[in-house]
Nucleic acid binder design. Structure first.
Lengths: 153, 153
DNA sequence: AATGAAACACTTCTGGT
DNA sequence: ACCAGAAGTGTTTCATT
Protein backbone atom coordinates (compact mmCIF):
# COMPACT_ATOMS: atom_id res chain seq x y z
CA UNK A 1 0.00 0.00 0.00
CA UNK A 2 1.32 3.38 -1.08
CA UNK A 3 2.29 5.82 1.65
CA UNK A 4 1.29 9.49 1.56
CA UNK A 5 2.98 12.40 3.18
CA UNK A 6 1.26 15.68 3.91
CA UNK A 7 2.09 17.09 0.48
CA UNK A 8 0.59 14.07 -1.26
CA UNK A 9 -2.57 14.52 0.76
CA UNK A 10 -2.85 18.19 -0.10
CA UNK A 11 -2.09 17.50 -3.74
CA UNK A 12 -4.78 14.80 -3.90
CA UNK A 13 -7.27 17.16 -2.31
CA UNK A 14 -6.47 19.83 -4.89
CA UNK A 15 -6.66 17.40 -7.82
CA UNK A 16 -10.00 16.09 -6.61
CA UNK A 17 -11.28 19.66 -6.40
CA UNK A 18 -9.92 20.93 -9.72
CA UNK A 19 -7.73 18.84 -11.96
CA UNK A 20 -7.28 21.57 -14.58
CA UNK A 21 -4.98 23.82 -12.59
CA UNK A 22 -1.36 23.94 -13.70
CA UNK A 23 1.44 22.08 -11.98
CA UNK A 24 2.96 25.47 -11.32
CA UNK A 25 -0.05 26.43 -9.20
CA UNK A 26 0.02 23.18 -7.25
CA UNK A 27 3.76 23.65 -6.83
CA UNK A 28 3.29 27.15 -5.39
CA UNK A 29 0.73 25.94 -2.89
CA UNK A 30 2.91 23.02 -1.82
CA UNK A 31 6.23 24.82 -1.82
CA UNK A 32 7.70 22.54 -4.49
CA UNK A 33 8.93 22.86 -8.06
CA UNK A 34 6.73 21.91 -11.02
CA UNK A 35 8.89 18.86 -11.64
CA UNK A 36 8.41 17.59 -8.10
CA UNK A 37 4.66 18.01 -8.47
CA UNK A 38 4.77 16.29 -11.84
CA UNK A 39 6.57 13.29 -10.33
CA UNK A 40 4.18 13.04 -7.39
CA UNK A 41 1.17 13.10 -9.70
CA UNK A 42 2.69 10.39 -11.90
CA UNK A 43 3.31 8.28 -8.82
CA UNK A 44 -0.32 8.68 -7.71
CA UNK A 45 -1.51 7.71 -11.18
CA UNK A 46 0.78 4.71 -11.56
CA UNK A 47 -0.01 3.35 -8.12
CA UNK A 48 -3.72 3.40 -8.97
CA UNK A 49 -4.71 6.00 -6.39
CA UNK A 50 -5.91 8.33 -9.14
CA UNK A 51 -8.03 6.26 -11.50
CA UNK A 52 -9.15 8.86 -14.01
CA UNK A 53 -9.76 12.51 -14.76
CA UNK A 54 -13.28 13.49 -15.73
CA UNK A 55 -15.50 16.44 -16.51
CA UNK A 56 -18.51 16.77 -14.21
CA UNK A 57 -21.82 17.76 -15.76
CA UNK A 58 -24.64 19.77 -14.20
CA UNK A 59 -27.74 17.53 -14.14
CA UNK A 60 -30.15 20.43 -14.44
CA UNK A 61 -28.54 21.66 -17.63
CA UNK A 62 -28.97 18.33 -19.38
CA UNK A 63 -32.50 17.54 -18.22
CA UNK A 64 -31.56 14.78 -15.82
CA UNK A 65 -32.38 16.49 -12.55
CA UNK A 66 -35.02 14.00 -11.40
CA UNK A 67 -33.12 11.60 -9.18
CA UNK A 68 -34.57 8.47 -7.63
CA UNK A 69 -33.19 5.85 -5.27
CA UNK A 70 -34.77 2.51 -6.00
CA UNK A 71 -34.62 -0.47 -3.64
CA UNK A 72 -34.76 -3.78 -5.47
CA UNK A 73 -35.41 -7.26 -4.16
CA UNK A 74 -34.65 -10.29 -6.31
CA UNK A 75 -36.78 -13.43 -6.47
CA UNK A 76 -33.97 -15.94 -6.76
CA UNK A 77 -30.46 -15.55 -5.39
CA UNK A 78 -28.48 -18.18 -7.21
CA UNK A 79 -25.11 -17.08 -8.56
CA UNK A 80 -26.35 -17.07 -12.15
CA UNK A 81 -29.40 -15.01 -11.31
CA UNK A 82 -27.37 -12.44 -9.47
CA UNK A 83 -24.75 -12.16 -12.19
CA UNK A 84 -27.41 -11.87 -14.87
CA UNK A 85 -29.13 -9.07 -12.96
CA UNK A 86 -25.86 -7.18 -12.48
CA UNK A 87 -24.99 -7.49 -16.16
CA UNK A 88 -28.33 -5.97 -17.13
CA UNK A 89 -27.87 -3.07 -14.73
CA UNK A 90 -24.55 -2.11 -16.31
CA UNK A 91 -26.25 -1.70 -19.68
CA UNK A 92 -28.95 0.72 -18.52
CA UNK A 93 -27.68 4.28 -18.90
CA UNK A 94 -30.21 5.90 -16.53
CA UNK A 95 -28.75 3.86 -13.66
CA UNK A 96 -25.68 5.73 -12.48
CA UNK A 97 -25.05 3.75 -9.30
CA UNK A 98 -25.94 0.26 -8.12
CA UNK A 99 -25.03 -1.25 -4.76
CA UNK A 100 -25.51 -4.73 -3.41
CA UNK A 101 -26.55 -4.06 0.16
CA UNK A 102 -27.31 -5.65 3.49
CA UNK A 103 -30.79 -5.41 4.97
CA UNK A 104 -34.33 -5.78 3.73
CA UNK A 105 -33.47 -5.23 0.08
CA UNK A 106 -30.82 -6.70 -2.18
CA UNK A 107 -29.84 -3.66 -4.22
CA UNK A 108 -30.10 0.09 -4.14
CA UNK A 109 -29.97 1.90 -7.47
CA UNK A 110 -29.59 5.59 -8.20
CA UNK A 111 -31.41 6.68 -11.32
CA UNK A 112 -31.17 9.94 -13.30
CA UNK A 113 -34.08 10.88 -15.54
CA UNK A 114 -35.81 14.02 -16.79
CA UNK A 115 -39.03 13.91 -14.76
CA UNK A 116 -41.65 11.70 -13.18
CA UNK A 117 -43.07 10.72 -16.55
CA UNK A 118 -39.62 9.64 -17.73
CA UNK A 119 -39.21 7.67 -14.51
CA UNK A 120 -42.48 5.86 -15.11
CA UNK A 121 -41.31 4.98 -18.62
CA UNK A 122 -37.94 3.84 -17.26
CA UNK A 123 -39.60 1.57 -14.68
CA UNK A 124 -42.00 0.00 -17.14
CA UNK A 125 -39.74 -0.52 -20.12
CA UNK A 126 -36.28 -0.85 -18.61
CA UNK A 127 -36.06 -1.77 -14.94
CA UNK A 128 -38.95 -4.17 -14.53
CA UNK A 129 -38.10 -5.66 -17.93
CA UNK A 130 -35.15 -7.32 -16.18
CA UNK A 131 -35.90 -10.91 -15.21
CA UNK A 132 -35.89 -12.02 -11.58
CA UNK A 133 -36.92 -8.74 -9.96
CA UNK A 134 -39.24 -9.45 -7.05
CA UNK A 135 -40.15 -6.03 -5.79
CA UNK A 136 -39.05 -2.42 -6.04
CA UNK A 137 -39.53 0.61 -3.87
CA UNK A 138 -38.79 4.11 -5.10
CA UNK A 139 -37.52 6.95 -2.92
CA UNK A 140 -37.58 10.35 -4.59
CA UNK A 141 -34.86 12.86 -3.94
CA UNK A 142 -36.36 16.19 -2.93
CA UNK A 143 -33.07 17.99 -2.58
CA UNK A 144 -29.40 17.23 -2.95
CA UNK A 145 -27.85 18.66 0.20
CA UNK A 146 -24.33 17.43 -0.50
CA UNK A 147 -22.63 15.55 -3.32
CA UNK A 148 -18.90 15.38 -3.71
CA UNK A 149 -16.64 13.05 -5.67
CA UNK A 150 -13.72 13.91 -3.41
CA UNK A 151 -12.54 11.45 -0.77
CA UNK A 152 -10.70 12.81 2.21
CA UNK A 153 -7.25 11.19 2.38
CA UNK B 1 -31.48 26.17 -22.19
CA UNK B 2 -28.45 25.30 -24.30
CA UNK B 3 -29.02 23.06 -27.33
CA UNK B 4 -26.73 20.15 -28.15
CA UNK B 5 -26.07 18.57 -31.48
CA UNK B 6 -24.72 15.07 -31.94
CA UNK B 7 -21.09 16.26 -31.76
CA UNK B 8 -21.71 18.06 -28.47
CA UNK B 9 -23.23 14.90 -27.07
CA UNK B 10 -20.27 12.78 -28.14
CA UNK B 11 -17.82 15.37 -26.86
CA UNK B 12 -19.55 15.50 -23.47
CA UNK B 13 -19.48 11.72 -23.26
CA UNK B 14 -15.75 11.70 -24.00
CA UNK B 15 -14.99 14.48 -21.50
CA UNK B 16 -16.98 12.69 -18.81
CA UNK B 17 -15.03 9.52 -19.52
CA UNK B 18 -11.55 11.07 -19.75
CA UNK B 19 -10.94 14.79 -19.55
CA UNK B 20 -7.18 14.52 -20.00
CA UNK B 21 -7.17 13.62 -23.68
CA UNK B 22 -6.01 16.32 -26.07
CA UNK B 23 -8.33 18.43 -28.17
CA UNK B 24 -6.61 16.90 -31.18
CA UNK B 25 -7.85 13.46 -30.17
CA UNK B 26 -11.39 14.66 -29.59
CA UNK B 27 -11.18 16.50 -32.89
CA UNK B 28 -10.14 13.34 -34.72
CA UNK B 29 -12.99 11.32 -33.26
CA UNK B 30 -15.52 14.04 -34.10
CA UNK B 31 -14.17 14.97 -37.52
CA UNK B 32 -13.45 18.55 -36.47
CA UNK B 33 -10.40 20.79 -36.06
CA UNK B 34 -8.83 21.39 -32.66
CA UNK B 35 -10.13 24.96 -32.75
CA UNK B 36 -13.71 23.82 -33.29
CA UNK B 37 -13.39 21.41 -30.35
CA UNK B 38 -11.83 24.14 -28.24
CA UNK B 39 -14.76 26.44 -28.95
CA UNK B 40 -17.36 23.79 -28.21
CA UNK B 41 -15.71 22.95 -24.89
CA UNK B 42 -15.59 26.63 -23.92
CA UNK B 43 -19.27 26.93 -24.76
CA UNK B 44 -20.09 23.91 -22.58
CA UNK B 45 -18.05 25.40 -19.72
CA UNK B 46 -19.48 28.90 -20.01
CA UNK B 47 -23.06 27.70 -20.22
CA UNK B 48 -22.59 25.77 -16.98
CA UNK B 49 -23.06 22.32 -18.48
CA UNK B 50 -19.54 21.35 -17.44
CA UNK B 51 -19.12 22.44 -13.83
CA UNK B 52 -15.61 21.24 -13.05
CA UNK B 53 -12.81 18.87 -13.90
CA UNK B 54 -11.67 16.50 -11.18
CA UNK B 55 -9.39 13.57 -10.45
CA UNK B 56 -11.19 10.46 -9.21
CA UNK B 57 -9.58 8.46 -6.44
CA UNK B 58 -9.77 4.71 -5.81
CA UNK B 59 -11.41 4.19 -2.38
CA UNK B 60 -9.53 0.96 -1.69
CA UNK B 61 -6.16 2.64 -2.16
CA UNK B 62 -6.87 5.29 0.44
CA UNK B 63 -8.51 3.09 3.07
CA UNK B 64 -12.03 4.38 2.57
CA UNK B 65 -13.59 1.28 1.05
CA UNK B 66 -16.20 0.74 3.76
CA UNK B 67 -19.30 2.45 2.42
CA UNK B 68 -22.55 2.86 4.32
CA UNK B 69 -25.92 4.32 3.44
CA UNK B 70 -27.53 5.83 6.49
CA UNK B 71 -31.20 6.77 6.72
CA UNK B 72 -31.82 9.63 9.10
CA UNK B 73 -35.04 10.86 10.62
CA UNK B 74 -35.18 14.25 12.33
CA UNK B 75 -37.13 15.03 15.47
CA UNK B 76 -38.26 18.53 14.52
CA UNK B 77 -38.85 19.80 11.02
CA UNK B 78 -38.92 23.56 11.43
CA UNK B 79 -36.94 25.54 8.88
CA UNK B 80 -34.21 26.40 11.36
CA UNK B 81 -33.81 22.82 12.47
CA UNK B 82 -33.54 21.58 8.92
CA UNK B 83 -31.03 24.25 7.90
CA UNK B 84 -28.95 23.63 10.99
CA UNK B 85 -28.85 19.90 10.26
CA UNK B 86 -27.83 20.50 6.64
CA UNK B 87 -25.07 22.89 7.67
CA UNK B 88 -23.60 20.30 10.02
CA UNK B 89 -23.67 17.62 7.31
CA UNK B 90 -21.60 19.78 4.95
CA UNK B 91 -18.83 19.98 7.53
CA UNK B 92 -18.41 16.24 8.06
CA UNK B 93 -15.86 14.92 5.61
CA UNK B 94 -16.87 11.25 5.84
CA UNK B 95 -20.29 12.14 4.42
CA UNK B 96 -19.84 12.31 0.66
CA UNK B 97 -23.51 12.53 -0.28
CA UNK B 98 -26.66 13.68 1.50
CA UNK B 99 -30.15 13.70 0.05
CA UNK B 100 -33.40 15.03 1.42
CA UNK B 101 -35.86 12.34 0.41
CA UNK B 102 -39.50 11.37 0.29
CA UNK B 103 -40.74 8.40 2.30
CA UNK B 104 -40.25 7.00 5.77
CA UNK B 105 -36.98 8.84 6.38
CA UNK B 106 -35.94 12.45 5.94
CA UNK B 107 -32.39 12.03 4.68
CA UNK B 108 -30.16 9.42 3.14
CA UNK B 109 -26.42 9.84 3.64
CA UNK B 110 -23.55 8.05 1.97
CA UNK B 111 -20.55 7.63 4.22
CA UNK B 112 -16.97 6.58 3.39
CA UNK B 113 -14.81 5.21 6.19
CA UNK B 114 -12.02 2.67 6.65
CA UNK B 115 -13.89 -0.16 8.35
CA UNK B 116 -16.69 -1.07 10.75
CA UNK B 117 -14.74 0.21 13.72
CA UNK B 118 -14.24 3.58 12.02
CA UNK B 119 -17.95 3.62 11.22
CA UNK B 120 -18.82 3.04 14.84
CA UNK B 121 -16.54 5.92 15.84
CA UNK B 122 -18.09 8.11 13.15
CA UNK B 123 -21.62 7.37 14.39
CA UNK B 124 -20.83 8.01 18.01
CA UNK B 125 -18.67 11.09 17.74
CA UNK B 126 -19.81 12.77 14.54
CA UNK B 127 -23.24 11.84 13.23
CA UNK B 128 -25.24 11.42 16.41
CA UNK B 129 -23.45 14.42 17.84
CA UNK B 130 -25.64 16.53 15.56
CA UNK B 131 -28.66 17.91 17.36
CA UNK B 132 -32.18 17.00 16.32
CA UNK B 133 -31.51 13.51 14.95
CA UNK B 134 -34.40 11.23 15.84
CA UNK B 135 -33.33 7.88 14.47
CA UNK B 136 -30.82 6.36 12.08
CA UNK B 137 -30.69 3.12 10.16
CA UNK B 138 -27.52 1.91 8.50
CA UNK B 139 -27.38 -0.12 5.32
CA UNK B 140 -23.96 -1.59 4.53
CA UNK B 141 -22.73 -1.82 0.98
CA UNK B 142 -21.58 -5.34 0.22
CA UNK B 143 -20.52 -4.64 -3.33
CA UNK B 144 -20.45 -1.70 -5.70
CA UNK B 145 -21.94 -3.08 -8.90
CA UNK B 146 -21.92 0.20 -10.80
CA UNK B 147 -20.76 3.72 -10.06
CA UNK B 148 -20.30 6.32 -12.75
CA UNK B 149 -20.05 10.11 -12.63
CA UNK B 150 -21.09 10.33 -16.28
CA UNK B 151 -24.59 11.43 -17.22
CA UNK B 152 -25.97 10.33 -20.54
CA UNK B 153 -26.86 13.43 -22.58
C1' DA C 1 13.31 13.11 -3.88
C1' DA C 2 14.28 17.49 -5.30
C1' DT C 3 15.76 21.36 -8.72
C1' DG C 4 16.29 24.73 -13.09
C1' DA C 5 16.55 24.87 -17.76
C1' DA C 6 15.71 22.97 -22.31
C1' DA C 7 12.76 20.47 -25.44
C1' DC C 8 8.41 19.33 -26.68
C1' DA C 9 3.33 19.24 -26.90
C1' DC C 10 -0.91 21.28 -26.25
C1' DT C 11 -4.01 25.20 -25.91
C1' DT C 12 -5.46 29.55 -27.23
C1' DC C 13 -5.73 33.43 -30.37
C1' DT C 14 -5.91 35.53 -34.95
C1' DG C 15 -7.52 36.28 -39.39
C1' DG C 16 -10.15 34.47 -42.96
C1' DT C 17 -14.00 31.45 -45.25
C1' DA D 1 -19.43 27.53 -36.92
C1' DC D 2 -15.60 26.23 -38.97
C1' DC D 3 -10.45 26.03 -40.38
C1' DA D 4 -5.07 26.61 -40.62
C1' DG D 5 -1.35 28.51 -38.71
C1' DA D 6 1.01 31.53 -35.21
C1' DA D 7 1.73 32.64 -30.54
C1' DG D 8 1.57 31.59 -25.85
C1' DT D 9 1.57 28.38 -22.07
C1' DG D 10 2.04 24.11 -19.82
C1' DT D 11 4.22 19.50 -19.54
C1' DT D 12 7.90 16.37 -19.72
C1' DT D 13 12.70 15.21 -19.92
C1' DC D 14 17.37 15.75 -18.52
C1' DA D 15 21.54 16.66 -16.07
C1' DT D 16 22.59 17.72 -11.50
C1' DT D 17 22.47 18.03 -6.29
Amino acid sequence: MIKFDEKDRKLLAMLQEDSKNTNKEYANKLGLSTTAVYERIKRLEKSGVITKYVALVEKKKVNKAFVVLCHVKLIQHTKDNVLQFEREILKIEEIVECYHVSGDYDYILKIHVEDMEAYRAFMVSKLTAIANIGSTQSTFIINEVKHTTAIDV
